[in-house]
């Protein structure tokens, strides 16, 4: 298999799963003829037809609501929200039904579904096209939240999400959709949901990130390495449920941790990770766990969005601060 981009990884997983299982359907705005505005669904309509690759009218709540019904009646729907910022219109269907049907019916009506949405700032888009609100979905009991950070992971995690029995919010880091390429296997690869990965080993501090913040965090780790600081880097991959085991095992060794996300700081995913570390290994920590995040504001209009996003410099600085303690 040639090297592919992250968006091509998404496309590949969709193609593979649609070919493997005729119950898998894709629906959303511009997903058919246009191939998706980011081209995530390109080629699907030609291969699987307009009945399974469904161009819907413009209605996010309608798309999710219809997917709920499809899941009830034997299909595995993969609805696309064109931008995560547009999913707010569908919030009530996701919160009220996608996340609760399994619970409401004591498992009699499961909700196998993957809600795909590109998220995040850094693409010079206008308002509501740069949102990072994974905490909403992680806060909703009944949902899983998966965020890939590389082409290979996008393919393998999306495959896993489609096979997963519960509804998964698949949050795609659009800022790195085409940022780099990666080799993927010819054989279908699937990664486990709920598992994080140590992507760089180190002994001084554990840096935890996911999605579009991964390249920046790894860059910070390289900057620190030049100074002799060995940072371990964890790619969460699944934000909810958290892979406590991998996080705790690492932080136990390093004694220090820092969490990075571009979502606003207050009540963000970092707060949850820090709480878990305090719960489980408080007395093994050498310093308070740091967080490097977006600020408590909507992503700024794009001329100033880079001032909002955690930069490698800022991440490295905060790591150094933690190491001083």
């Amino acid at each position: 298999m040639p090297e592919i981009t992250l968006i091509e990884g998404v496309n590949l997983a969709l193609k593979e799963k649609m070919a493997e299982n005729e119950n898998v359907v894709v629906l959303g705005q511009d997903v058919g003829l246009d191939g998706g505005i980011f081209r995530a669904t390109i080629g699907l309509i030609e291969e699987f037809g307009a009945d399974r690759v469904i161009d819907t009218p413009l209605a996010e709540a309608g798309i999710i609501g219809m997917a709920v019904g499809m899941a009830m009646n034997g299909l595995i729907p993969i609805p696309e929200m064109q931008f995560s910022g547009f999913s707010y219109t569908a919030f009530h269907q996701i919160e009220n039904h996608v996340a609760r049907y399994h619970w409401r019916t004591r498992g009699q009506i499961p909700m196998p579904m993957v809600i795909r949405m590109p998220y995040g700032a850094g693409v010079r888009a206008f308002e509501l096209h740069s949102e990072s609100r994974e905490a909403y979905w992680a806060h909703t009991p009944g949902l899983k939240v998966v965020i890939p950070s590389t082409p290979r992971k996008a393919r393998a995690l999306l495959r896993a999400a489609i096979e997963h029995p519960d509804p998964v919010v698949f949050y795609e880091p659009k800022a790195i959709y085409r940022a780099f390429r990666e080799n993927v296997s010819d054989e279908p690869e699937t990664m486990e949901i709920g598992k994080a990965e140590v992507v760089r080993e180190g002994r001084h501090i554990t840096m935890i990130a996911y999605g579009a913040m991964m390249p920046r965090t790894l860059e910070a780790a390289r900057m620190l390495a030049d100074e002799g600081i060995e940072a371990e880097v964890i790619d969460l991959m699944t934000v909810s449920p958290l892979d406590e085991e991998t996080i705790i095992e690492s932080v136990r060794r390093t004694g220090r941790a820092l969490v990075v996300h571009e979502a606003p700081r207050s009540f963000g995913p970092a707060a949850e990770i820090i709480a878990r570390l305090n719960d489980k290994i408080f007395f093994e920590l050498e310093a308070p766990v740091a967080r490097v995040t977006g600020y408590d504001m909507p992503p700024p209009f794009f001329a100033r969005e880079q001032w909002f996003l955690p930069s490698p410099t800022r991440i490295a600085d905060e790591a150094r601060e933690t190491l001083k303690l």
């Binding site: 705005q29 511009d30 058919g32 161009d55 009218p57």
Partner: peptide, 11 residues
């Protein structure tokens, strides 16, 4: 046209 969706597919 709503991006790629023609009026007759909208309603």
């Amino acid at each position: 046209w709503a991006i790629s969706l023609p009026r007759e597919r909208q309603t």
